[in-house]
Design a protein around this nucleic acid. Structure first.
Lengths: 217, 217
DNA sequence: ACATGTATGTTGTAGTTACAACAAAGGATG
DNA sequence: CATCCTTTGTTGTAACTACAACATACATGT
């Protein structure tokens, strides 16, 4: 129990929940622990969306299939990350995405209804969970908005400049925490075209960079 | 009071709340009603985000300024629509967007804290409000995801085909509830380029359309 | 040291888009 | 009906992107 707490306490859902409370709370959530092998499917598109999932060990990828059947990796998640909460909260009956284990992983299944329905004992930590969930979903909302703002830009350069502006936090020098490939995927542009744009911007004296260290000039 | 109820009951936030309960609930939310003239600013980027706003009459536009100062209309909202809830729920202290009245409008300000904090009387309708709010924000989340999926597509045609696929609901014939201009804005493409693409697709025998009536062939 | 694999940068090309400018078709108004 | 305004479609062009193919660098394991 304490082991689980030490993992899930890192998730915003349990922000401000102390172990003493967690002990009482945890059994209320009808928790189930399951292990998955590499490439095993944790949640399939079309499955019922009754659970909120938290990764206890390992990592997973969230995949969405195209109309034409092409798979599309939306994100990769690892220990203490949560998924499935948006479908559950939106009362969507079935998942739109598939979740696949990237390695040997253990996942905690929590009953969504039990999370958002105050228990009879009307415990205060329970209402804390609910407001945490609300905050968590709203924050995701803002991140999605940010991404939309980014990819609304028509050119690679505009997207990069906005990305820089968001992530440099008023610093001239900053580090980008993505590989080129992942950054390109996030910005929805071709990787090589993006690399090319980086070079151009350096030649034009707009930026300077070395590996993932960037500087605005 | 009944007049207000008849407006806000159309908003998901008050789904399942009956008038009898609303009467008791309403005063708990520290409601404020304010009127705004055309072009008057209701909420400025940078303002404190303590309220959830519901439009009682008129209409507004949500505007986000670019880095280079260019204004960008995110959406237009009208009677019984809600705004400001995401910033409030995410505990973002200040709004990122500006909200401007498009005409003579009246707006209801509700204290966010009062919405998500169960009152002493622990009224059941109050917890209904909270779960409605959660559902509402989560649904918005899914809509944002859908938009990201759309504009992740690299070409106008791919975006259109996906848009059709989402909105036709397995019907061959369907109506698009947007002007060309608004659809182009939603898909983040140039309007004339989109019109052009429509023509091409019709010439190629992929679709047929007349005004806003479309048919997949 | 060698082979292998992965991440990144470079180049050319064909295809796509944004943009501007204009045309055509209604709608509203006086 | 003439005028104005808005919406939508059309065309040409310059700019941009995706894609493929390749080059380079670096890390890993054998």
């Amino acid at each position: 129990m304490e082991k689980i707490f030490n993992i899930v306490k890192n998730n915003d859902l349990f922000e401000g929940v102390i172990f003493k409370d967690f002990e009482k709370l945890y059994p209320c959530l009808s928790p189930i622990r399951k292990k998955f092998k590499k490439s095993e499917i944790i949640l399939n598109a079309g499955d019922k969306a009754n659970y909120v999932y938290i990764i206890l060990s390992g990592s997973v990828k969230i995949v969405k299939s195209d109309i034409d059947g092409k798979d599309n990796v939306l994100t990769e998640l690892s220990v203490s990350d949560i998924f499935g909460e948006v479908f559950a909260c939106a009362n969507i009956l079935h998942s739109h995405v598939t979740v696949v284990s990237l390695q040997e992983s253990e996942v905690l299944f929590l009953n969504y209804k039990k999370i958002i329905t105050s228990c009879q004992s009307a415990c205060s930590y329970h209402s804390k969970l609910i407001s945490n969930m609300l905050k968590l979903v709203a924050k995701k909302n803002i991140m999605l908005h940010q991404k939309i703002e980014l990819i609304s830009k028509r050119t690679t350069r505009e997207r990069l400049l906005l990305y820089f502006d968001i992530h440099r936090r008023n610093q001239k020098k900053f580090t980008i925490p993505h590989s080129r490939e992942n950054l390109a995927a996030y910005l929805c542009v071709d990787r090589s075209a993006m690399s090319n744009e980086f070079s151009k911007m350096q030649k034009e004296g707009i930026i300077k960079y070395d590996k993932n260290q960037f500087e605005i000039l």
